[in-house]
């Protein structure tokens, strides 16, 4: 039996290693976390970890960080959660710091400026890509299409006086309201369109690290 300190240290190191290998957060991390936690460390069973991923995806925050935190919590309580969270964040944190220093140094350099003129257009594409990806899970019926469209319109014309946080809270309330109303009208709504997680992890390739 290891000491508590030893366990915390192992948790920290395990997630520290996962961070840079998988290029950060997102769905790319899931198979790696699973291998480390279930097969190598035997902290949890495959069934438990599937539940953890489902929850990690649903609560706010990045799925990779959330999964790590949750696993740390299951293994060693609050301190385990902290150890896992810091472990998974630390590599990213350092890389961002280095990149930001590099970026501030290079700022104003003509070649750099030219590169960024092009990169800005690519960022728009990246955001559009994210919209398409998440749109696939959100667009389940006509009502959800209306909700999506309404959000865009409200943000476009009302962004100066409507805070996005209100919209997000409103969205959750609207979801409940709509489903209730539809139930009264006797209609069924497909709540999700997702396939089983195991299938999805295989389908979603490594590039979905955005979340």
């Amino acid at each position: 039996m290891k000491t508590e300190k030893g366990v915390l240290w192992t948790i920290f190191l395990t997630f520290l290693k996962i961070g840079p290998v998988t290029f950060g957060g997102g769905y790319a991390m899931i198979p790696v976390i699973e291998r480390e936690v279930v097969e190598k460390r035997k902290w949890l069973e495959t069934r438990d970890i599937a539940d953890i991923f489902a929850v990690a995806e649903s609560i706010p925050g990045a799925i990779g960080i959330n999964s790590a935190t949750f696993i740390g919590y299951r293994v060693a309580g609050i301190r385990g959660a902290l150890a896992a969270m810091i472990g998974i964040l630390l590599p990213t944190f350092c890389i961002i710091l280095l990149l930001s220093l590099f970026f501030l140094q290079m700022k104003g350099h003509p070649k750099m400026e030219a590169a960024f003129i092009s990169i800005r257009a690519t960022i728009v594409a990246l955001i559009a890509y994210a919209a398409i990806k998440i749109g696939k899970t959100a667009l389940v019926d006509k009502t959800s299409a209306v909700l999506i469209l309404l959000t865009v319109i409200v943000m476009y014309f009302g962004h100066s006086f409507i805070h996005p946080v209100l919209l997000i809270a409103g969205g959750a309330a609207a979801g409940i309201g709509i489903i209730m109303l539809k139930q009264k009208l006797g209609r069924k709504t497909p709540l999700t369109k997702r396939t089983k997680r195991t299938k999805r992890t295989k389908q979603e390739p490594i590039f979905d690290y955005m979340i």
Binding site: S58, L147, I148, V152, G171, A172
Partner: peptide, 10 residues
């Protein structure tokens, strides 16, 4: 979540 996902997409 049904409502949330739609808002997030928007």
């Amino acid at each position: 979540f049904y409502g949330l996902r739609a808002i997030i997409t928007g």
